[in-house]
Amino acid sequence: MNTSVQRTPLDFDDLLNRCLGEVDFARRILSDFLKTTRPLLDEIGSALFNSAEEKAAFQVHRLKGTAGLVAANSLLDSLVELETLLRRTSDTTHAQISGCLTQSYQRFDEVQKFAERNLLNRPQAELSS
């Protein structure tokens, strides 16, 4: 029997709690997050391409904070891993880093799809209940 619980890419209840139960405000935060995250991931990729690991690590750290804030938990896990790889430079390979960055893009895609399908376009009453 499979006892593992399938986690959604985003825990809207958590986000809603941080927004003090205000659905419109939570949606605004989420929407801002979706708008700004892909360019940030691109910036991280470009910093890595230019061997600016320090800058990349700073951006990952920043994005990690926001992913945690909006409760995009699977993306958060992926960014935690990426930050760890970037800060532990001695035995980290480029392949590991780029693999982890790719995974972060995928996780973000999942968050975006989930949010658009389940949250951003649903009536407010359904979400607040």
């Binding site: 997050f33 700004t36 904070g65």
Partner: peptide, 8 residues
């Protein structure tokens, strides 16, 4: 510095 975090 992160506008989303700041906003919340």
């Amino acid at each position: 510095d992160n506008p989303i975090d700041a906003l919340v």
